[in-house]
């Protein structure tokens, strides 16, 4: 168990290193900088700006400064009225540096503001997906071939096949315009999060339902379920104690990719519903060459996805005694 955790943490470090290096290389390798605008800045101003962010340093030096809290010589441009402090505290010390586009904001500030919103939205969407998907899949498996099963299967196919912005705009149209129970967009109260969470979670609910249906059908055909029934267990107990855990296993292993998918989907959903979350910052920052912000979001999301996957792997041992977490290879 300890070895397993240790190894996973090592891989985590490696993955983060790969992401940081790749993202850094991509961002800096491309022409065009964070200070490009409609109107080119006077050369002297641009030079000073670049100097104050250390963009005039050689690339390896910038990289070292970005990654770690290292002493790399003179800091800051005192001539500009800077306080002469380090531009980046270094990712290793948890400081993602200043944002290049949002002056006076550090990436940490922006993330601290937007991440709770995105996390709330994502969690709500996943919870919704599981709360709808699992019962739907179970019902579909129990009533196989009946009309409810057919309807549910059609609904899951649609949920998987439609892009989430189509679902979002349909929801908006019905529940915000025709029958205005929820606000159209923005963020403030829980009511603002209902429609986005629905739209974000719908494809995942559909996928979960499909997984549960397949899993439950497989378990229902097992001998131990027949034995449980033959011994006279009440049907509810058979379902909850014997069928459901088996049917949930595929869902569990899918949760990792699903979490990554929810983060991806939130890029779109946050934009449609004008939610000031991390996702909307990411797209803008990648296009605006706000190097530090884009990299900060990417690093953060990598860590989130990785951490979530780790939790999922650990929970295997808890739900399925056959699979100990250590027996991976």
């Amino acid at each position: 168990m300890k070895r397993f955790l240790l190894r996973r943490l090592l891989w985590f470090a490696l993955t983060l290193f790969a992401v940081v290096t790749l993202a850094f290389g991509l961002m800096r390798g491309v022409r065009g900088g964070p200070f490009d605008g409609e109107r080119p800045l006077p050369a002297a101003i641009e030079r000073n700006l670049r100097a104050s962010y250390h963009l005039d340093w050689p690339l390896w030096k910038q990289y070292c400064e970005y990654v770690g809290p290292l002493e790399l010589g003179e800091h800051g441009a005192r001539a500009l009225g800077g306080d002469g402090t380090q531009v980046f505290g270094g990712v290793l010390s948890g400081d993602f540096g200043p944002s290049f586009r949002y002056r006076d904001f550090s990436v940490n500030d922006i993330l601290a503001q937007s991440l709770p919103i995105s996390l709330a939205l994502g969690t709500l969407a996943l919870v919704f997906a599981l709360c709808v998907g699992i019962p739907a899949g179970l019902a579909s498996a129990l009533l196989r071939g009946r009309s409810l099963d057919v309807v549910l299967r059609l609904a899951t196919s649609l949920g998987i096949a439609l892009p989430n912005f189509v679902i979002a705009s349909a929801l908006l149209f019905v529940f915000a315009l025709v029958w205005p129970v929820f606000p159209v967009a923005g963020y403030g109260s829980w009511r603002h999060l209902v429609l986005p969470a629905f739209a974000l979670g719908a494809p995942f609910a559909a996928y979960a339902a499909r997984l549960v249906r397949t899993g439950a059908l497989e378990v229902l055909a097992q001998d131990y379920v027949r034995t449980a029934r033959a011994k006279g267990l009440p049907e509810s107990r058979v379902l909850l104690r014997h069928v459901l855990p088996g049917a949930l296993l595929p869902v569990l292993s899918w949760l990792g990719p699903a979490a990554a998918g929810v983060l991806t989907g939130s890029l779109v959903i946050e934009r449609i519903f004008a939610i000031p979350g991390t996702g909307s910052h990411f797209v803008n920052s990648a296009l605006n060459r706000d190097y530090t912000l884009a990299m900060g979001v990417t690093i953060l999301y990598t860590a989130l996805v990785y951490g979530f996957n780790l939790l999922v792997d650990l929970s295997y041992g808890w739900i399925d005694p056959r699979m100990r977490a250590g027996g991976e290879e």
Binding site: A23, L26, T264, V283, A286, L287, T298, Y301, T302, V305
Partner: peptide, 15 residues
């Protein structure tokens, strides 16, 4: 698998 690949695709498309 543990890379958030959509984010890298967006980076790359920018490039």
């Amino acid at each position: 698998f543990s890379l958030p690949f959509v984010f890298l695709v967006i980076f790359l498309i920018g490039v």
